[in-house]
Computed example of a mutant assay.
Amino acid sequence: MGLLLAGGLGLFITGCDRANEPEPADENELITTVSLKFTQQGSATTQTFTFRDTDGDGGQVPSRFDNISLKANTTYTLTIDLLDESKSPATNLTSEIQEKKDEHLLVYTANPASLLTYTYGDVDGRNFPIGLAGTARTGAAGTGKLTVRLRHQPPVNGVAVKNGTVAPGSDDINIDFNLTVQ
């Protein structure tokens, strides 16, 4: 009886189908520093606005959180730098996002929408926007917020989910900058 039980247990252990096991989760990046670089078109003038929270979400308050101030009715080239400064040396995540561009989408949303519109300047391998570089066009003078979100949209069970919209995935960052257009 004991031999039969041991044999049955051996079949149970070796009979597990590993193909049905879920894939390990592709974890979100820890991004502690976000720098937005606005370069006025037709000019060499670049303004950089930074959010820095070196211990990540929660814990200490951010050590730097710039207010964005831009000229009204002006077109800017907008690029973004993303860092993880929780370790030394800091990790440049912008290049990692570029490498995994089929899994990431940056979204720039002004509130009110009349303050700024963003046009993507880069696309991934399936022609969906990325948002590491683009064009920002300011509207009339006013104040509000510019929300910057990095959506992490890795494949699920080997199937790509990024579709050019905000819906799939989760936030790596979601930051509201104060925005003044003057």
Rank of each mutant, 00 (worst) to 15 (best):
S95G: 04
S69N: 05
E96P: 00
S63F: 07
S43P: 06
T32N: 08
D66L: 05
E96W: 07
T75C: 13
T45F: 13
D66K: 09
T91H: 05
I97F: 01
T75W: 14
E99C: 01
S43N: 07
Q40R: 08
T91L: 10
T46A: 11
E27F: 00
A72F: 02
T39N: 01
G58K: 00
L93D: 08
E23F: 10
E103K: 14
L82P: 00
T74R: 01
F51S: 02
T79H: 15
T50R: 15
S69A: 05
F49T: 02
L93Y: 07
S63K: 00
V61D: 12
P24I: 12
G59H: 11
T33K: 06
E27W: 13
D26G: 09
N73D: 14
S43Q: 12
L93V: 02
E27C: 02
D57G: 14
D26L: 09
E23A: 11
E21F: 15
D53H: 03
P89R: 02
T74K: 03
R64N: 08
R18S: 12
L105G: 01
R18I: 13
D53L: 04
V61C: 01
D84G: 05
N73W: 09
R64A: 04
K87T: 14
T79R: 11
F51T: 04
Q60W: 02
R18Y: 13
E96F: 06
A44D: 15
K100A: 07
D66Q: 12
I68E: 09
I68T: 03
D53N: 11
T75P: 00
I31Y: 05
K100Q: 10
L30C: 08
